[in-house]
Every structure is written in structure tokens, then in C-alpha cells.
């Protein structure tokens, strides 16, 4: 019987903290994807899934926020029922909404890059609200820029038709950007500091 002896190479405290935050935020994104609030007057449900991507970029910065979203996608690919309506598996990326899943990852990276402008996340107190809004809207634009052509390709329809199909979802998403800033600016997250 062979035995190995090697020294334990501990993970740095900052990395442990960011890894834990990214994993929990990925789980939160997965949980938010399962909840949606029906709005009878508009006809489309108010999905909470995009908030996961917004928070990942805004709170964890470009690298760890992107890592959180990548964890979410890999966990879903590996079979956790984390996508909307409890779906899982690589087949989701070939589906109608697969582009939006990839868009959430890229969107979180863009939001993090614009708001934090460095790898390590800064405190949100040091980032003005307009910068946060610009970052979130850029992230949202990336989500749609990836999601709509992907959907057109999967369904074999024109980009214009896909954009028309997704148009009812856009105004609620704009509302979500403002709600996100309202939540992080509301002083509810002081516990994290």
C-alpha cells in the first residue's frame, strides 16, 4: 500500500471568501430562477432570474461575478435543476433561452468590469449610482445581444421575429435594473461590510 505525504497548500482567505460568496450567489440565482410573479395586466411573468446576474456583477466584480454565473451554468449542465422551471442538462443551451443563460454570464462580467474597473470587488459605497446604472444597463444589453440572435438561430426564425417575441420582456427587465440599484443602495447589505 502506498501512501502520499505532502504539505497542505491552504487557500488564501480572500479567495475562500470570494468562492463562498460566488457559490451562494450562484445558488441564489438558481433559486430566483424558480420564482416568478405573474402580472396579469402585461401577460408575461415577472421572472426574478436576471437579478442573479445583476447582483453577481455588481457585488462580486467582473472575475468573481463571472465565476458565480459560470458555476450556475456548470451546475445546471451537470444536472442540478437550477434553470427556469427546474430544467437542467446541456440540452438547455440548445434550447430557445440558452443564449440568455450565456448572456447572464457575459452580462455579469460586463457589469462588474464597468462598475468596479478592477479584479477585486470594491465597496459599493465608493461607486456612484449613475455608474452602477450604466454598468447594469450595459450588462442587460449584452444579455439581449447574445440571447436574441441565439434564439433566432435555434428556432430558425429571423432576428427581427425573435426580437419581436422577446419585446414584451424588455420593459420589466428595465424595471429590474432600477430595483437592483434600489436594493443595494437601500442599506440592506451593510451586513456584508
Amino acid at each position: 500500500m502506498t501512501e502520499e505525504y505532502e504539505s497542505v497548500d491552504l487557500v488564501a482567505d480572500d479567495t475562500v471568501r470570494n468562492l463562498a460568496a460566488a457559490a451562494v450567489l450562484a445558488a441564489l440565482t438558481a433559486a430566483l430562477a424558480q420564482l416568478s410573479i405573474p402580472i396579469p395586466s402585461v401577460g408575461v411573468p415577472f421572472s426574478l432570474q436576471p437579478f442573479g446576474s445583476f447582483f453577481a456583477g455588481l457585488l462580486l466584480g467582473p472575475v468573481w461575478g463571472g465565476f458565480a454565473m459560470a458555476l450556475y451554468l456548470v451546475a445546471g449542465t451537470a444536472g442540478a435543476p437550477v434553470f427556469a422551471n427546474g430544467a437542467a442538462g446541456i440540452g438547455q443551451f440548445g434550447g430557445r433561452t440558452g443564449g440568455f443563460l450565456v448572456g447572464f454570464l457575459l452580462g455579469a462580467v460586463v457589469t462588474g468590469a464597468i462598475t468596479h474597473r478592477q479584479v477585486a470587488p470594491r465597496s459599493l459605497d465608493d461607486i456612484s449610482v449613475p455608474v452602477q446604472l450604466v454598468g447594469l444597463f450595459a450588462g442587460l444589453a449584452v444579455v439581449y445581444a447574445v440571447g436574441v440572435p441565439w434564439m433566432a438561430e435555434v428556432l430558425g426564425i429571423s432576428v427581427r421575429a425573435a426580437a419581436a417575441a422577446m419585446a414584451p420582456f424588455f420593459p420589466p427587465d428595465v424595471v429590474k435594473v432600477f430595483v437592483t440599484v434600489g436594493v443595494v443602495e437601500g442599506g440592506h447589505l451593510a451586513i456584508r461590510e
Binding site: L19, A23, V24, A27, A30, A31, L71, A75, A80
Partner: peptide
Amino acid sequence: GVGVGLVFRFF
């Protein structure tokens, strides 16, 4: 590897 395990656990 660790992160995916944690997501499964925390979801």
C-alpha cells in the same frame, strides 16, 4: 469542482 459541489448543496 468545489464550487459546483457547493451550488448543488446550497441550491
